[in-house]
Amino acid sequence: MFHGVVTATMHDLSGAFEADLSAGRLTLRVGAEARVLAVPASVFATLLTGDAARLAAEQVGAAVGADVKALLGADEDPSPETVGFALSAALALRGLGTLRLERWGDALLAVLEGVAHEGPAFASFLATVVGAAVAAVTGSPSRGVLLSASGAEAKVLLVHDEAAAAVAAWVAEGQSQSAVLARLHGG
């Protein structure tokens, strides 16, 4: 297996996560400093119900987006590769897995790997996180819709806020990824 590298200059990730055992404190220091908790993913997943789950996901996504911006530094309009790497790094720092981007026609797909917990609730949580993070980074009305989740992988389609409900309905109907993508393109 070969792994490529991103050559763009980014924020130094050393010291981005600190475990101060003497003070019983875990801290993220990428964007704004934030105290975090280490909670089993399976326990966290049980809390993901209703509007509270959506609100939590949006707040986590906004925080991830802020981290991405901090990682990107002064680069106002970076390349897809650079942002893809920063997004992946920001998610990884929070134990949310890693991310790669795929472009299918004009549609943008985020594929999450190493997802911490299997199950539709957690996968939907991640989809909202990614959509909110992209919205924060780009200032766009981006939403993440869960296309599929299998094992430790989840596929999230990034769509306009106004299209999200319809796309989610297609997925709920059991339409395949290719069918959803084709339909989104007007096919």
Binding site: S79, R103, A107, V159, A166, G186
Partner: peptide, 19 residues
Amino acid sequence: RPATFKALVARALTLRATK
């Protein structure tokens, strides 16, 4: 292919569920 991530996202968000 858009050269920047913002342009890439902007392009993706033009897709709407019209049918």
